[in-house]
Simulated scan of single mutants.
Amino acid sequence: MTDSLDISVVVPLLNEEESLPELQDWISRVMEEKGFQYEILFIDDGSTDRSWEIISQLAEKSPHVKGIRFNRNYGKSAALNIGFKNASGQVVITMDADLQDSPDEIPGLYDQITKDGFDLVSGWKKKRYDPIMKTIPSKFFNFVARKFSGIKLHDFNCGLKAYKRDVIKAIDVYGEMHRYIPFLAKGQGFVKIGERVVQHQARKYGETKFGLERFIFGFLDLLSISFVSKFKKRPMHFFGSFGTLSFFIGTIITFWVIGRKIYEIQMGLPARDVVAQPLFFLALVAVIIGVQLFLAGFIGEMMTQTSTKKSDYLVSHKIGLSK
């Protein structure tokens, strides 16, 4: 039966007990109006309120509702990653649980994947109901992300996205990389990435779980994923190149300093002491750094060949899914 599902809706959440019944009802209403075969996967990222209890109650009432609960808070990336691994739909929709993403957008996103042939479609909250301290840093962050990734999206961090099933099964979302899923998808060869203007609503319950520090971490993650996407499978190309360059520069300078002293002695000129020259020590440092970088690249290559992936988060409960 799972193979016949049209849509899986993956909803990561943390302490959203008030919004869950309304969100589930809204999603189900849209799905049934359009005649979709669907499932809703609520991923409880270690909530400390009644969120898991609410999910359990919803699952008892509806066979479409499934749930996964972490034993503690691991972050949105971990929640999405395990949601992707358990999703069965041909199209996977992600959205936040705070009711700011509208389930009414699901049919349009689904059509862009199934009819227009996109691998991934990202929502664009063109009109936002967020405070200015959140919107201004977000605009700057998205500008930098576009430049780094080469992907022309206005809103990388929008939680409302649609994916072809092949995409979410081909990527691993880790750390805080949920902001850069389009970048991860592009790195796996899924280059048909689209965008859709979506309705954004004011938060109805509770408070946002994200602070301004996410933008600082976001830029660090952007640098990290830029590096990993280019050199994950070939670390020697990065470390080896810089190591070789540093080694040869240091070696050339060292021989030049020593050669100049020999020349001065042969010509009867006042010979400067080699070890008294700062340039000589800088050259030695360059040689040492070059060797270290080369070895780092070599070790990285060995680790790449022998590494095995494993999740570092624990699931404490599941509903409606195989154990």
Rank of each mutant, 00 (worst) to 15 (best):
Q112K: 15
E60D: 15
G159H: 09
Y110H: 15
A145T: 15
R179Y: 12
K164S: 14
G150R: 09
A97V: 00
K161V: 07
S88C: 07
L120D: 06
R69F: 00
G117T: 05
G89Q: 01
G83L: 03
S77N: 11
L109I: 10
N81G: 02
G67K: 04
M177P: 03
I55H: 02
P63C: 12
F140S: 09
P103W: 02
F84L: 05
H64V: 01
R72M: 08
K152A: 07
S56H: 06
R69C: 01
D49P: 09
H154C: 01
Q100L: 02
I113Y: 00
K139Y: 12
R50Y: 00
K139M: 15
V92C: 04
I68P: 05
P103Y: 04
Q57H: 07
K115C: 05
K134P: 00
G117D: 07
G67I: 01
F148I: 15
K85Q: 14
S88F: 03
E60F: 06
G75F: 07
Q112P: 04
D111P: 00
A170L: 08
P107I: 08
Y110R: 07
D111Y: 01
R128G: 07
I55S: 04
L99Q: 03
D119G: 02
I168G: 09
I113R: 00
K169L: 14
L80W: 04
A87C: 03
N73K: 11
T48L: 14
Y163S: 04
P131V: 03
M133V: 10
A87R: 01
S62R: 14
G117A: 06
F143S: 14
K66G: 04
P103K: 02
K164L: 04
W124Q: 11
R50N: 03
D111I: 00
G89N: 01
N157D: 15
F118Q: 03
D101H: 10
F84D: 06
W124V: 08
F70L: 03
K85N: 10
V173H: 12
D96M: 05
F70A: 02
I171R: 06
F70G: 02
G67R: 02
S56E: 12
Y74N: 06
N86D: 04
R50T: 00
K127V: 09
K85D: 12
I171N: 05
E60M: 12
G150E: 10
I113F: 00
A97S: 10
Y174Q: 11
D155H: 14
V121F: 10
M133W: 14
T135I: 11
D49E: 08
P137S: 05
D98R: 04
S88K: 11
S102R: 14
S138D: 15
P107C: 10
K115D: 10
A79C: 10
K126N: 09
G117Q: 08
V92Q: 05
F141V: 07
S122Q: 13
N142H: 15
R69K: 14
K125I: 01
D101C: 15
K125S: 08
D104S: 11
S77I: 09
L58N: 01
A145V: 13
V144I: 14
N86V: 00
L153A: 12
F84S: 06
Y74S: 07
I151W: 08
K134A: 06
I106L: 12
K152F: 04
I151P: 08
A145M: 10
I132V: 09
R72A: 07
